[in-house]
Amino acid sequence: MSAFVFFAVLAAALLHASWNALIKSGASKFTSMLIMTVLQGAFGSIIALSNALPAASVWPWLVASALFHSGYKLFLSYAYEQGDLSRVYPIARGAAPMIVLALSGFLLSDTLAAFEVIGVLLLGLGILMMARGAFANGESRRLVPFALGSAVMTAGYSIVDGLGARVAGDAVLYVAWMFFLDALIFTPVCIAFRGRGVLKSTKHDWMIGAGAGAASYAAYAIVVWAMTLAPIALVTALRETSILFAVVIGWLVMGDRMDRGKATAAVLIVSGVVLTRL
Score class of each variant (00 low, 15 high):
31 T>D: 05
174 Y>V: 05
42 A>D: 10
212 A>V: 06
101 L>T: 13
126 G>K: 09
256 D>L: 06
141 R>A: 12
104 S>H: 08
176 A>Q: 05
242 S>V: 04
117 V>P: 02
209 G>S: 08
131 A>C: 08
224 V>G: 00
45 S>F: 09
27 A>K: 14
17 A>F: 05
34 L>E: 06
13 A>F: 02
277 R>G: 15
67 L>T: 06
34 L>K: 05
52 A>I: 03
188 P>D: 09
160 V>F: 00
113 A>R: 15
119 G>H: 08
126 G>F: 07
73 K>Q: 15
25 S>D: 11
139 E>Q: 15
66 A>N: 03
73 K>R: 15
217 Y>P: 01
56 A>K: 12
218 A>Y: 03
29 K>Y: 03
128 L>S: 15
145 P>N: 12
21 A>L: 04
115 F>I: 11
189 V>S: 11
239 R>C: 02
212 A>C: 09
169 G>F: 06
191 I>H: 04
7 F>K: 09
26 G>P: 04
160 V>Q: 00
253 V>T: 10
128 L>I: 14
66 A>T: 04
29 K>G: 07
255 G>R: 11
157 Y>V: 02
223 V>I: 11
50 S>A: 11
46 I>M: 11
64 A>S: 13
147 A>Q: 04
253 V>A: 13
235 V>W: 00
173 L>H: 13
120 V>G: 14
217 Y>E: 01
45 S>Q: 09
242 S>M: 04
180 F>W: 13
164 G>F: 05
240 E>H: 13
57 S>D: 13
72 Y>G: 01
65 S>F: 02
107 L>N: 06
139 E>F: 12
13 A>E: 02
57 S>A: 15
74 L>W: 13
253 V>I: 13
276 T>Q: 08
192 A>I: 02
25 S>C: 06
132 R>Y: 13
71 G>M: 01
85 L>E: 06
27 A>D: 15
192 A>W: 12
148 L>Q: 07
6 F>I: 10
182 D>V: 05
58 V>C: 01
204 H>V: 15
116 E>G: 09
163 L>F: 13
124 G>C: 09
182 D>M: 14
205 D>I: 07
7 F>D: 11
23 I>M: 10
23 I>G: 02
273 V>N: 04
86 S>L: 05
27 A>E: 15
221 A>G: 08
249 I>Q: 06
134 A>D: 14
181 L>Q: 07
147 A>I: 03
187 T>I: 08
254 M>S: 08
91 I>Q: 01
227 M>Y: 01
68 F>Y: 05
76 L>S: 04
143 L>V: 06
144 V>P: 04
242 S>L: 03
44 G>P: 07
21 A>M: 09
185 I>P: 00
231 P>S: 05
255 G>L: 09
26 G>Y: 01
93 R>D: 01
158 S>P: 00
81 E>A: 09
54 P>L: 10
236 T>W: 08
